[in-house]
């Protein structure tokens, strides 16, 4: 198996307080990895390092080594635009723009200056199908994306992220703002897609992590405690702390 993203000794400071104390974690290509851990453990912060979304926050200092396909993404020469086309992101709150479904999904393509209308249309349809939202949107592609249900909106956002054909998609608690039925829809979508893309997902829902992920990494107070195959970790965790967390003794 190939490692698509590798990180070494990643430290992140907000001003004077360190939020990540040196994380070493590699991600396998075409696998779904979940990052779990109690609130404030740094898992979201770490996720946002992987496509440099933390850059916009003032007073953040990141050190260490993060490589995407062997290339350091924290050099001065790194093109953020190019990086984010390869490493897409879906947020906790569904964030469709108040445009039509079509314009939402086509957004990234148009950013990339793709002018070919037929190609855009083809990609939009394909992406909506991949995100398992095509049946609900095919007759209403011109409807404002914000007029759909939360689960539908989130799947439109997944389609939007997929439209530029990223290699990696980061998901920051993609179902925590959704009701159980909508969450199940999104999970189903992710299960169907995980052989084609690399997903890295932060979640608070341990059942969700065990249901859909191949790899799991457990974070605690800014440290990576344990990582490995999901099944192994949930059945026989190596560390006592992981065991306690998975059994609901804290967190």
């Amino acid at each position: 198996m190939t490692k698509i993203i590798t990180t070494k000794a990643v430290r992140l400071k907000y001003g004077n307080s360190e939020a990540l104390h040196g994380i070493d974690l590699d991600f396998e290509a075409k696998q779904l990895t979940t990052l779990i851990g109690p609130s404030g453990c740094g898992k979201s912060t770490f996720l946002r390092c992987l496509n440099r979304m933390n850059d916009d926050i003032p007073n953040v200092h990141i050190s260490g080594d993060i490589k995407f396909e062997g290339h350091d993404i924290y050099t001065n020469k790194t093109d953020l635009v190019a990086l984010r086309k390869e490493v897409g992101m879906v947020f906790q709150q569904p964030t469709p723009f108040p445009f039509s479904v079509f314009d939402n999904v086509a957004f990234g393509l148009r950013l990339a200056r793709i002018k070919d209308k037929a190609l855009i249309e083809e990609r939009v349809i394909e992406s909506l199908k991949q995100a398992a939202i095509w049946n609900e949107t095919k007759d209403v592609l011109n409807r404002n994306a914000q007029r759909f249900s939360g689960g539908q909106q989130q799947r439109i956002c997944i389609a939007r992220a997929l439209a530029v054909r990223p290699k990696v998609v980061l998901l920051d608690e993609p179902t925590s703002a959704l009701d159980p039925i909508s969450s199940a829809e999104v999970e189903q979508t992710l299960i169907q897609l995980k052989r084609q893309y690399t997903f890295i997902m932060v979640t608070h829902n341990l059942q969700q992590a065990s249901r859909i992920s191949d790899q799991t990494a457990f974070f605690m107070n800014g440290d990576l405690i344990e990582s490995g195959a999901t099944e192994k970790m949930f059945i026989k965790p190596k560390r006592q702390m992981t065991n306690d967390y998975l059994n609901g003794r804290f967190g």
């Binding site: 979304m53 709150q93 723009f97 950013l111």
Partner: peptide
Amino acid sequence: KHFRQASAALGATHWQTIARVVLKV
């Protein structure tokens, strides 16, 4: 703010985000 973030995460530059999302919204 989440519109700006979503746009940036799709590979938009600051100016593209302004022109295509912020001003439009």
